[in-house]
Amino acid sequence: MSIILSLLLLQAPHALPGETAVDPYVADNRHAGAAPFEGDGMARAFGGQEGIRRIVDRFVAINFADPVIGEIFANHDQVRLKRTLFEQFCFILNAGCSYTGRDMASAHKDLGVQKADMNRLVETLQRAMGEEGVSFPAQNRFLSKLAPMRRDVIEN
C-alpha cells in the first residue's frame, strides 16, 4: 500500500490540489539543499511538526507583507510555498518529513534575489522562530544549514 502511495506521489502531481501547476520534476530529498540534523534535538527545539508548521505559516505571512522583500513573493503561490517550506524545514530539522519541492536553484530562478534580500529573509525567519520560542542557539544552528544555499538563491 505504502509502495503504491509513494509511487503515486513520485509520479504525479508536482502541485497538490489548491496549488498552481508547476513544470514536472522528480522529487528528491536532496532538493532540500541540506543534510538533515541527526537525532531529535533540533526537531524538539522547534516544537515538532506542529511548531514547524506554525513557524512556516508565520514566516510566509511576514514575508508576503514585508515592505522590503514582499514584492519578490507577490506573485507566488502561497499555499504551495507554505507546504514545500514546511517539508523542507521539517526534513532538515529531522522532524519526520520528506521534501517534495524543487531544488533551490530552480525554485529561485529569475526572482532577482539580492544579498540584502537574503539577509532580510534571515531576519523575518528569526522573527518567526523567535515568536515560537526557539532559542537563539537553535535558530543559528538551523540557519547554518540554510546559509550555504545562498549561492543558489541569489542572482549573481
Binding site: Q114, A116, N119
Partner: peptide, 10 residues
Amino acid sequence: ARPIRNGGKL
C-alpha cells in the same frame, strides 16, 4: 555591477 541599493547587512 548593478544599481546601488540601501541597507542589508545582518
